[in-house]
Design a binder for these strands. Structure first.
Ligand SMILES: NC(=O)c1ccc[n+]([C@@H]2O[C@H](COP(=O)([O-])OP(=O)(O)OC[C@H]3O[C@@H](n4cnc5c(N)ncnc54)[C@H](O)[C@@H]3O)[C@@H](O)[C@H]2O)c1
Ligand SMILES: NC(=O)c1ccc[n+]([C@@H]2O[C@H](COP(=O)([O-])OP(=O)(O)OC[C@H]3O[C@@H](n4cnc5c(N)ncnc54)[C@H](O)[C@@H]3O)[C@@H](O)[C@H]2O)c1
Lengths: 216, 216
DNA sequence: TTGTATTCGTGACTCATTTCACAAGGACCC
DNA sequence: GGGTCCTTGTGAAATGAGTCACGAATACAA
């Protein structure tokens, strides 16, 4: 346990271990080896051990890692002990799909509201989640204790809304728009750009690159 | 120009530069400095120059990089000279949202078909794109010359369908399911897992990590 | 209890990526 | 045509990530 700085790619791997551990826990498995964890997370056994050893000694030599305690430890490390309260901004095609995504809840993220400008949508419920007016963004975020936002509005208003979210005290934004958001102190931002991923595929294919598996 | 091996994170940055260059080209800008490119792609000027120098000398000292030629060069490097023919497998909530995503075309990816099991959907068109039976997956992929697939089916059938896609000759899969797909020779796979990104946000927030901007 | 087979934890090493610093090359003004 | 800015291109240095090998600890069988 040497408490190095935790890199982004390592956090990504921890997520992968956690996913696998949840699955194993549901199956009733008691212990799992670094090798098995590595296979599912597309890495090596040594890497798994090194990653986990950053936080303490959870394994038992000769046996492996106890599934449930290790899962709970990762939940703690990743900050998922209690669910995060989140909203979706932009209840369009993509936003609506996300509102119906049941895995959010299972993974510790609770979507408590959506926001939109469209008067047709405001006041309705989509997948059981209320669509609120974008005008009330700041007040609703405060009263409902919303900490995270998923941004699925068009390019035009994206920057402005991100600023308003930051201003209203949101701690993190998951950005699905192709707009690059300005970093704001106190607000973490992560972008999911489909085109970037597709272009990555394209590059690998034309350069004859086999290496199939990065993410899932 | 030293022709090192191109890393994954570098390809990601190249995508970022390309996005910005497309935007600047549309605005009519003639030249751009490494500094400006760096600001938008959340990196440093030196990094931009080093990245680009892998492929040749495109810049003019004292002036910067000519926007349109550099854009075209990146298009070539990333393998985007002609559009890729793609399909969406699983025309559910997420799949439907993706079928309506107009930016695909602009970025060089043409969605020519969707596949599903649901008899209600098969034969219909969604957003102008025909929904075909999953039973005809192999034959349709061959006759329509489909090269890429976006996978948006439930967890259950995901692995099996990925195998069928690989068998049918698809060159790349963009996987939105939480299922980890087995790497297959000749098929590049890239996963987009929302939960992984949200967990990354969660981690950064609880550890007090400011560093706002990775992706968009 | 002893021996053998496992599997973790970890320091040393290797390899990859990023940053730094600056010379080289061109633009532009006078 | 000479001087002055700028900004690129690039080796060298610094930093960081991932791999290896092996000792320590444990399980289990005989
Ligand atoms: N559709 C996809 O599959 C997809 C995939 C990846 C990324 N994206 C990105 O996600 C974003 C949304 O895409 P979409 O296809 O869902 O578009 P959409 O037009 O279907 O939905 C956008 C929604 O945002 C709302 N909106 C517009 N301005 C707003 C404002 N100022 N405040 C609040 N809400 C506002 C609209 O009323 C609409 O409901 C776009 O930036 C797009 O590039 C979409
Ligand atoms: N909804 C989201 O916002 C979201 C976000 C991220 C990831 N995902 C993932 O994307 C996948 C789809 O999610 P969804 O919400 O769109 O689910 P959905 O149930 O709305 O859609 C799934 C579609 O796949 C079709 N399907 C089922 N079995 C099939 C088969 N064997 N062959 C072809 N088609 C088949 C179904 O008929 C349905 O139309 C899931 O794996 C989910 O975890 C969804």
């Amino acid at each position: 346990m040497s408490t190095r700085k935790i890199s982004d790619s390592m956090v990504r791997r921890l997520s992968g271990y956690l996913r696998q551990l949840r699955f194993l826990a549901a199956e009733g498995r008691r212990v799992v080896s670094s090798q098995e964890l590595a296979d599912e997370a597309a890495t090596t056994a040594a890497q798994v051990r090194k990653d986990l050893s950053q936080f303490g000694s959870f394994g038992q030599r000769g046996r492996g890692y106890p599934v449930v305690p290790l899962r709970d430890e990762l939940v703690r490390i990743l900050g998922l002990r209690r669910p995060w309260r989140a909203c979706v901004v932009g209840a369009g095609r993509l936003g609506t799909a996300l509102l119906g995504y049941e895995d959010f809840g299972k993974r510790g993220f609770e979507i408590v509201a959506a926001f939109d400008v469209d008067p047709e949508l405001i006041g309705k419920e989509v997948e059981g989640i209320p669509v609120l007016s974008i005008e009330d963004l700041e007040s609703e975020i405060r009263t409902r204790g919303i900490e995270l936002a998923v941004l699925t509005v068009p390019h035009g208003p994206a920057r402005r809304i991100a600023d308003r979210l930051a201003e209203a005290g949101v701690r993190g934004i998951l950005n699905f728009t192709p707009t690059r958001l300005r970093a704001r102190p106190g607000v973490s931002i992560r972008g999911m750009d489909i085109a970037v991923e597709l272009e990555g595929l394209s590059y690998r294919i034309v350069t004859g690159g086999e290496p199939g598996g990065n993410g899932a």
